[in-house]
Computed example of a mutant assay.
Amino acid sequence: MNERLPTGIDVLDRTLSGGIPAGSIVALVAAPASQSELLLYELTVPRETLYLTTERSAEAVRDAFERTDAPAGTPDIEQVTGEAPLDGAGRLVETLPRKSTLIVDPVDPLERCEPARYRRFMNALQTAMVNTGSVAVLHCLSGCSTPSGRDRTEYMADVVFSLETRVAGESIENRLAVPKFRGGRALSETIKLELGDRVRVDTSRDIA
């Protein structure tokens, strides 16, 4: 069995037989207005993390980590900007320590780059994850303007987390699906989550 790296989120680690296989790329697909950042915060807890921000400034992300009540690590936060974001991201990926976590938040600007260059980046990313025994988490926003490279991201990812958030009556319901899991077993059912001060299983009963 491949070595598993814990996510730091108990409910996921139990469900995924200990965590994510080392060397994997994970696509976390979620709406911009969801609490998906809470998942990202907790993913920084178990081990050294390189956090690449492509939209917000590095200062804004550091401030968010300082203000959150959720469990969070102390990642190395770097901003990827400019006309060649793939080049900047690629150089930073080369600095990744062994058995660490890489987060790209969000990956959308990279997915909008020229298709052949994005494909090369994804292949190089996969090689880097395997060589370092690390895990990469690509935060994919599922808004109105999905980037052209999204299909490639989900195809090349080893694991896909799909977070669906909807308003149900007076409450907000979050369900996490894992439709794809190379090196393991995809989940046949969604996990109902409570995203408050941390990620928990929502034990409230569904009402038809």
Score class of each variant (00 low, 15 high):
T153K: 10
V135M: 05
V130C: 06
G149F: 00
A124L: 05
V167I: 15
M156R: 14
A136N: 04
A157C: 00
Y155V: 04
S134M: 09
V137K: 13
G149N: 00
L163M: 06
T127C: 13
G133T: 00
Y155G: 04
H139Q: 12
T146S: 12
S162Y: 13
D158G: 07
A128W: 09
Y155C: 04
V160E: 09
S142I: 05
A157L: 00
A128R: 15
G149I: 01
R166F: 07
G149A: 01
T132A: 05
F161I: 01
C144L: 15
M122R: 14
N131V: 13
V137R: 12
S148Q: 11
A124S: 12
T146P: 12
S148I: 08
T153P: 09
T132Q: 09
E154A: 10
T165R: 15
V159R: 08
M129D: 06
N123S: 15
H139W: 07
T146D: 12
L125A: 00
R166G: 13
L138D: 09
F161R: 05
Q126F: 08
M156F: 12
L141Y: 00
A124F: 03
L141H: 04
G143T: 01
G149R: 00
S162F: 08
Q126Y: 11
A128F: 04
H139G: 06
H139A: 10
E154D: 06
L125S: 02
D158N: 06
C144D: 12
R152V: 10
R150S: 10
M129T: 02
T132N: 10
A136I: 00
V135E: 00
A136G: 06
L163Q: 03
T127H: 14
T165M: 09
N131E: 15
C140L: 14
A128G: 11
A124P: 05
T153Q: 08
P147T: 00
A128Y: 07
T165G: 13
Y155W: 06
M129K: 10
T153D: 08
A136K: 07
G143E: 01
R166Q: 14
R152E: 14
G143A: 04
F161D: 02
T146Y: 07
D158P: 03
V137E: 08
D158E: 01
S134T: 01
L163K: 08
Y155N: 07
S162G: 14
